[in-house]
Design a protein around this nucleic acid. Structure first.
Lengths: 345, 345
DNA sequence: CTGTTAGCGCGTTCAA
DNA sequence: TTGAACGCGCTAACAG
């Protein structure tokens, strides 16, 4: 038993298809009130639900907005997703979700699927990479996006342009000032920290990670400090944990109080978690800072110094919301980077 | 410049529409290999992307699965969303996302929108409620779901049936054994805790909250303990925080070491966060337990005792994945409920 | 203001 | 095996 159709409603109301359509679905021209009511009654009686697919086909506008993320359960992405969702709601559209493993090849698949569904626009979140292994995938992804844009699609990319994508119409990038913010963080940390710095970074070639590393180094240089050593690892908690384990020995074997900058919050949490069982206490024996200011981690102790990013706004902006302010971040110094004898909050 | 259509491809390949369709989109009957190749070439040249809307219209099956959550940025829901996403991927379908404010009225809207898009199935997560204020909304939601099911839709609900929904075909509930698990938690806590218990619960009428409260009380009773006092507050971190503030005085003013059970993890975190600045240390001055075992909170210190729920599996199951095991939880006792002189992990 | 008609892009039944 | 024709449910031109 399929859902009832508009023509059934029209027949029951004793009017034509067009009239029923005008009454039930948004049209500029409003039919007479008495006939309109009859149509509404009929629709009600039949439990009529307009077929959005058919509407989309006829109007060639689907009211869909696609969202590509690496992992919807990652708090970074889910915060962005919330922003996209809100923007979609305001625009009276629905969100199509695609979680990919993070490889460009997978993302290309997702983009193609969105294009097939004729999504009006789409948002691509997740770090871009220039690693050799992603080269072909990037090219294909760029081609797919390009075609989509040429067909009138709107694309919002978070962070960096997709590698190789031409600056087509309808293609816009929500720039996140990772580099400046990381420099700012480094500057503020250098003001109170005398010892050395170490950076826990993601794999080389990940733009977001690379930008934050570069910015941080620049900030150190501006403060007259030597460059920090960079440890490359996975761009997630597990990566941070590994790096933390590797650092533990070193910290315990030296008198120096190291300041550790992990290029994102979950990595910083991983570092801290690895250090704790080794008896290395933050901020007593070393200090730790992250990046992103993930909401769920805000109750973490010691409170994590980080850079606040308005992730929801980023999502909203990428989804094409006009009255979202441009993206700016804020350095947040908290307990994890306090001086050795700071207040015991 | 709109995307190219199947008939354009057919014309360029010099074949009929039907043939092109058979070649490009899954059909049982395969045309000759030489002609098939010509069609594929043409499609490639034109950058043909099948219009999923039109396909859906013709086949009356959209390949869409709707997901209703209260807040996609809430780690509880985003974990479930991951499960749904994975199931969808396996079934070669896409996820339509709707975040609602949590009111049944909003959820009804979302369900209607999914129905309009002719989603093949949908998943509704988020606690059901029997509060008076939700009565009408619940009824409308139930009616909407009912109609959707009658039209052949599949509905998976997490936790509890939607209030008032008739057990229609295609309607199934992923039961979460909240009550038994809460009882189990209470039992294990009672084994090592001598003092009193307090429960921080959500508003009365929220099934999930009520079940956990009831189970916990039952568990206490089975252990020969008096019933715990129940404090009602918001079902989120803010609610927990408020309750924590209210409790702080009492804990400081008494010698008794209270065991606080918050009906979910984020509330437990809120309680702990409120207690900390008041100088109440966990587990020294009081102990705290939660429910859900949210992944992002696992590095929280003191490590939170809780009940582990396989949220991804729940999502997968609700999305109709056949080979996901039935849902069982596990009590996880960690540092936050340890005896006063436990090991300093 | 209303009704008729022609598509939107595709799957699928029929004849050929 | 291939192609012509119809229908999926709806919108938007037209004509009345």
């Amino acid at each position: 038993m399929a859902a009832s159709t508009l023509s059934e409603v029209a027949r029951l109301a004793g009017v034509s298809l067009a009239t029923a359509s005008r009454v039930l679905n948004g049209s500029s021209r409003k039919p007479a009130e008495d006939i309109a009511e009859r149509v509404r009654d009929a629709a009600d009686k039949l439990g009529y639900v307009p077929n959005a697919q058919a509407q989309a086909l006829a109007k060639s506008s689907s009211g869909l907005i696609g969202l590509v993320v690496h992992d919807i359960a990652d708090p970074y992405f889910s915060a962005i997703a919330r922003g996209v969702q809100e923007a979609a709601r305001q625009q009276n559209r629905m969100v199509l979700l695609a979680s990919t493993s993070g490889t460009p090849a997978d993302e290309k698949q997702a983009v193609a699927a969105f294009a097939a569904r004729r999504a009006d626009s789409m948002v691509i979140a997740g770090s871009r990479s220039v690693r050799e292994e992603d080269k072909q995938g990037n090219a294909e992804l760029a081609a797919e996006l390009d075609r989509y844009c040429r067909n009138g699609g709107q694309v919002g990319v978070v962070g960096h342009p997709v590698v190789g994508a031409s600056a087509a119409d309808g293609y816009h990038v929500v720039e996140v000032p990772n580099e400046e913010l990381a420099a700012g963080l480094a500057g503020q940390l250098a003001a109170t920290h005398d010892g050395g710095f170490v950076i826990i970074a993601g794999p080389e070639g990940l733009y977001t990670s690379d930008d934050r590393v570069r910015g941080f180094q620049q900030g150190l240089a501006d403060a007259g400090r030597p460059a920090a050593e960079v440890i490359r690892t996975g761009f997630n908690r597990a990566g941070g944990f590994q790096a933390g384990q590797a650092l533990a020995e070193r910290i315990k074997g030296s008198k120096e109080r190291l300041c550790i900058f992990a290029v994102n919050d979950v990595m910083a949490i991983g570092v801290t978690a690895a250090l704790r069982p080794e008896g290395v206490w933050i901020p007593r024996d070393a200090t730790v800072a992250g990046f992103d200011d993930i909401e769920t981690l805000r109750d973490f102790r010691p409170a994590l110094s980080t850079v606040h990013l308005p992730l929801e706004d980023i999502g909203r902006l990428a989804a094409g919301d006009p009255d979202t302010p441009p993206i700016t971040g804020t350095v947040k110094l908290r307990r994890s980077t306090e001086a050795p004898v700071g207040p015991q909050l």
